[in-house]
């Protein structure tokens, strides 16, 4: 099982001929992801790494049966690329592009919702089901198959957490980077429910950061719907108020969105919060009663 991506994923890469698109296509392929097509308008008929390139997502889906699309196009074009994937009828869209205008995301998320298609990102590192499918820019070698589900608003902090888990012999079912933008696709609630329903996931790690109130909502959702153990970490405990720390989402505004408030929200519903990344594996082992 696992969630969202697995051995049955048939991946399409939008922006496959670009610098980042072609580099990560080869990395994902090397990991064993089943990449069936690429799209790059005007470059249909070419191949990249032996993968056929199409002019439109619709043509690619028709010819290859792709069910998942990953997007590497420049930010000004990303909103449109998301909608193109949605219109062509894939089941899941992952947008890696960073710096997408918020109103483009408002439009794109509304369209995908109407079509019943799942979106992850934008401005995210993608996701991985270890030993089955890597759909994103995560470094595959730090992951290990197992029963811990992980979701995070940050990229490299996820890598740090995963390597700590792997070192502690805690493998992962699926790890999802949801991205740090104000308007994004799947968020904590949806993923918590998916992990809750996934028989291969026994515990959940939630990595949040300052800004917004998504962590507070997640805490409430956990209280009402999640019976599996959850542990959390919040980045930005030392951030000064009102400064943007690289993620548009990480803005502390007038008394809401601070690390303190988020930590309190989780602890109030019985979710332990690590103060240092290194405490995460110990907290999980304690909850799962592993020595």
């Amino acid at each position: 099982m696992s969630i969202l991506v697995n051995k049955n994923t048939r991946l399409l890469v939008q922006g496959i001929t670009g610098r980042d698109g072609s580099f990560h296509t080869s990395k994902m392929k090397e990991y064993g992801t089943n990449i069936v097509a690429g799209v790059s308008p005007g470059k249909g008929g070419q191949t990249v790494d032996g993968i056929p390139v199409f002019n439109t997502v619709e043509a690619a889906v028709k010819a290859t049966g792709a069910n998942t699309s990953i997007i590497f196009v420049p930010a000004p074009l990303a909103g449109d690329a998301i909608m193109e994937a949605g219109e062509a009828g894939v089941e899941l869209v992952i947008c890696i592009s960073e710096g997408v205008p918020t109103l483009d995301m408002v439009k794109a998320t509304a369209y995908l919702k109407k079509k019943g298609i799942k979106l992850i990102g934008a401005n995210c590192p993608g996701l991985i089901t270890p030993e089955e499918a890597l759909v994103g820019i995560l470094p595959g070698n730090i992951f290990k198959k197992g029963n811990i589900g992980l979701m995070s608003r940050s990229g490299t902090l996820t890598y740090l957490m995963v390597s700590l888990l792997t070192q502690a012999d805690l493998g992962q079912s699926t790890c999802v980077g949801i991205g740090g933008d104000p308007v994004a696709g799947l968020y904590y609630q949806e993923l918590l429910q998916m992990f809750q329903d996934d028989p291969e996931t026994d515990a959940i790690v939630l990595i949040g950061e300052i800004g917004g109130e998504a962590e507070e909502r997640a805490a409430q959702y956990i209280k009402e719907h999640v019976t599996k153990p959850v542990v959390a970490f919040i980045a930005g405990q030392s951030a000064p108020p009102g400064k943007r720390m690289g993620h548009a989402g990480a803005i502390i505004s007038s008394g809401s969105g601070t690390a303190e408030e988020k930590i309190a929200a989780f602890e109030a519903v019985g979710v332990p919060v690590a103060r240092l990344p290194i405490e995460i594996p110990q907290l999980i082992k304690k909850l799962l009663k592993i020595n």
């Binding site: 940050s154 740090l160 740090g180 950061e209 720390m245 990480a250 240092l276 990344p277």
Partner: peptide, 15 residues
Amino acid sequence: NGAGLAMASMDVIKH
């Protein structure tokens, strides 16, 4: 490298 890791690094220094 990365905003989240940068924040976490600052947090650990403070800690």
